[in-house]
Amino acid sequence: MSNQGDWPLWEVFVRSRRGLSHTHAGSLHAPDAEMALRNARDLYTRRNEGVSIWVVESAAITATSPDEKDPFFAPAADKPYRHPTFYEIPEGVKHL
């Protein structure tokens, strides 16, 4: 028997207004992409929260593993010189 358990999970991304990027709003079940879009509209934009929606099957997303978060993101940790505040500029120097 076919049932809702067969419906894949979709992640929903909503652009709240023009000029902003899509952000993750939540997830839902739907049999296909078209229905996922319709359900997303009814579930996540009942109050004009969006002007554009993306849906993507959750299974299609590749994510970093939380267990390896330290080594994975370690390369960025010891490079403070990538931030403007790393540099000392004499007082009174403007527009820098």
Partner: peptide
């Protein structure tokens, strides 16, 4: 139940999920 089944059958019939990896 029939609505859920019909939707799942429709999705299967129209096969391929949109978008390529």
């Amino acid at each position: 139940a029939w609505v859920r089944e019909a939707a799942a059958a429709y999705a299967t019939k129209h096969g391929a999920r949109p978008g390529r990896p």
